[in-house]
Amino acid sequence: MDEKYVSAFIHSITGVFASFGAGETVSGSICKKDSFICRYNLTTIIGLSGNIKGNVALSMPYDTARKIASVMMMGMEVAEIDEMSVSALGEMTNMVCGQAVMELSSRNLAIDITPPTVIHGDNMKAYISQVETIVVEISSSLGSIELNLGLEI
């Protein structure tokens, strides 16, 4: 997968987190997997269609999910993952994918995104593409988040 696709999503996460006032994000190394064993309990996922088909999944621990939902809800305390906090996490994923798609559209790629879905549980295993999944660990003041890209280009 061309680095520009991965960079677009890393840039968008950086931008979205900065807009929350979450400060700087630090991206770890990029690795490839056939499938991904969810290291974390909660995953948000958005599908892509058009010039690029595939799925983008953001995986995170509950603690990070609660903190992100809280900053998106103007600092409201989030004690548990309920419908309101999940809606906030879905919106965050929408913002990340929307900004990445905007960046890629400047390279003449027409991509549409699906509504977000949020899934959480224990011992999760996922396949988000029939091709390899690119995984990038991203650290921020809100905690760790794992970017998973399964794109068929």
């Binding site: 996922i45 269609s49 224990d122 295993k125 996922a126 988000i128 593409s129 029939q130 399964g150």
Partner: peptide
Amino acid sequence: ATPSIFTGT
């Protein structure tokens, strides 16, 4: 979009 598959408890 392409299918994504999740399994877990």
